[in-house]
Design a protein around this nucleic acid. Structure first.
Lengths: 111, 111
DNA sequence: TGTAATACCTATAACTTATATGTATATTTG
DNA sequence: CAAATATACATATAAGTTATAGGTATTACA
């Protein structure tokens, strides 16, 4: 899993799901969480993450909240009502996709 | 599954697996097979398929064989020895990816 | 005979993520 | 205490994959 090619199309789903689970998170925290959960198999760099987050904000899926931590500003992201709906939709889509791919690739059934 | 975004990064894996299962296939046949297996959920257009096939040939994964069917030329694709190794590798990678994603997205375990 | 299906192909657009780079503060360690 | 590392934000451009749109030609069917 050195090559993260497969992640394409799922980064936003990952972000949305993390926010669904944790209520609110800031960018750096998200990159760390992904690394921890996947035991380092996936490393989302900031150059990938921030454009994705900004995109989700622009689409109305997230709202931000800036908090001062000393002299540093930490920007929290949280799901909007729309974002919660979209999250559910994306998770369903992904489950369907896995089932379909397992059919296509003759993998053991699941989910 | 209207949006095929999730397919990104897996098209070649799908093609390689189909060839592994069927020995040899031609382009049009591959598009039809994918549609049938996925019950129309995925439609790989020729504009996506042929560049992918040509890429795999250029990478040494496939060899071609042209057969005359009346006045029409049908181009069969078949896995090379290298292609067989690569297919196995890609299938393993994909299985690992699914397991990892199920962890990230809190989906039911599988495979 | 004209429409749909078969069968190949390419060029360019669109979309997503990676890479490289920049800035600045806080913490840890030698 | 200085230097390295971690924290924390961000953007611009490159790279890679698939989609869209277009092109050509044969065969089957209504």
């Amino acid at each position: 899993m050195q090559s993260n090619e497969l992640i394409k199309g799922t980064l936003k789903t990952i972000i949305l799901n993390l926010l669904k689970e944790n209520g609110r998170m800031y960018g750096y925290e998200i990159t760390q969480a992904i690394q921890e959960i996947t035991k380092g198999e996936i490393k989302i760099t900031e150059g990938s993450l921030y454009p994705a987050l900004h995109g989700l904000v622009a689409e109305g899926m997230l709202i931000t909240e800036s908090v001062n931590i000393g002299k540093r500003v930490r920007k929290y992201y949280r799901l909007t009502k729309e974002g919660k709906v979209e999250t559910k939709k994306k998770l369903t889509e992904f489950s369907d996709y896995i089932v379909m791919m397992q059919g296509l690739l003759n993998l053991k059934p699941s989910i």
